[in-house]
Simulated assay, not measured.
Amino acid sequence: MEFGIREITSGDPVVSGLPQDWQDSLYKILFINESGCSLRVNGKKLELEPLSLVFLAKGIGIAPCKGESRIFQMLYFSQGFAARTEDELSFLLSFGPLQKSLQGYTILKLTEQYSSYYHLMVSHLEMARCNYNRAIYRDLAFNMVRQILLMGHIYLQQSEYAPVHSADNESRLVSEFRILVQKSVKRERKVSGYADQLKVSQRKLTQITKRITGRTPKELINEHLGDLEKRMLADGDRSIKQIAWDLGFRDVNNFSASFSKRFGISPKEFRKKWRL
């Protein structure tokens, strides 16, 4: 599922009911309530303070701590869910807390005055999840997630809500690379082209991207291209042939073969399934 929220204890198996690749394919935001909790993030045990939001990028691993029983909420969503337009995708990719840093997490500590708002957000997200088959609730989920990201963007820049860590030069380079990919992937799919734009060597870009995200630049390019293809098939009324040309494929058969190989479903079948 592209969006969801679940109540779990830190000692529960977090992966239950989620797709096998959820750690790599989904963004995650943890809602820590008044009790706080402990959790392992990328193998490191963290004691998470009460009333805080923990932003985790795709690729960041979380696991339970033995003996922990305190409850927290985990919101998870895909890139396609949070980015319906190019502007929304640019915002998502430039939002540092959801781009994998060397430490892997960013914590936003809320003040006591936000306690009721915290629970209101959680209850509305639960409502949206339970009624996700209805368009109005999908819009509610999208708007709630958008609001949380905007709130994080605003408050993490203020000293009283300072994050646990700030992005370093390498993290910024990867963020800039991902923004460039978002803007240019239709016409540029070579790592060397992005390295030239960023004024670094292809080798350096590959080393830093692999260290920060766990994936190569080429893998990130292909991932974004796949997300773009799915979004174009799901939205609008352009024919599959027109989409193939817009994405730089020589003909629709090449596009269909490439899409089917990567996703196990043809573009036509994907569009039909999405619009049911």
Score class of each variant (00 low, 15 high):
E68S: 03
A128R: 07
L89E: 10
Y132A: 12
T111P: 00
R129H: 10
F77I: 08
P64W: 01
Q103I: 13
F81S: 10
Y132N: 12
F55T: 10
S116Q: 14
R84I: 06
F55C: 10
A135S: 12
L140R: 08
V54S: 08
L56M: 03
F95K: 12
Y76N: 14
L98G: 09
A83Y: 05
E86I: 04
I71Q: 05
V145N: 08
Y117P: 01
C130L: 15
K66F: 05
R84Y: 03
F95L: 11
L125M: 15
F77E: 07
G104V: 02
L51Y: 11
G80P: 00
E88G: 08
A141L: 05
N131D: 11
L56R: 01
F55M: 10
M151A: 15
L56H: 00
F142V: 04
E112L: 05
F55K: 06
L149N: 08
L56C: 04
N133S: 13
H124N: 15
G59T: 04
Y117D: 14
I60P: 00
M121N: 11
K66M: 08
K100W: 02
G96T: 12
L108W: 03
L125I: 13
T85M: 09
L75C: 13
L125D: 13
S94C: 08
R84E: 15
Y76A: 14
S123V: 05
S94I: 02
A128G: 14
F77P: 03
V54I: 15
G67E: 03
Q103N: 13
R84W: 04
Y76I: 13
T111S: 10
Y114T: 05
F91G: 12
Y137F: 15
E68R: 02
E88H: 02
G152A: 13
S52R: 00
F81Y: 06
L110M: 12
C65M: 03
R84G: 13
L53A: 06
L108A: 09
N133L: 06
I60F: 00
Q99D: 09
N133A: 12
A82C: 06
G61V: 07
L125S: 11
V122Y: 02
L120N: 08
M127I: 14
Y118W: 10
Q103S: 12
A82Y: 01
L110I: 06
S90T: 11
G67M: 04
L150W: 07
V122H: 05
R84P: 02
S78G: 02
L102E: 11
T106H: 09
A63E: 14
L89D: 04
A135Q: 12
A57H: 01
F55V: 07
Q73S: 09
F55Y: 15
C65I: 08
L56K: 01
Y137L: 12
T106P: 00
L110F: 02
T111R: 11
F95A: 14
L120V: 06
C130T: 15
Q73P: 00
V122Q: 05
I60Y: 00
R146N: 15
Y132M: 15
A128M: 13
M74D: 03
S116C: 10
P50T: 04
P64N: 03
K109E: 14
A135F: 07
L149A: 11
E126S: 08
E126H: 08
A141Y: 01
L89F: 01
E112F: 01
Y114C: 07
Q113V: 06
Q147T: 15
M121T: 09
R129C: 15
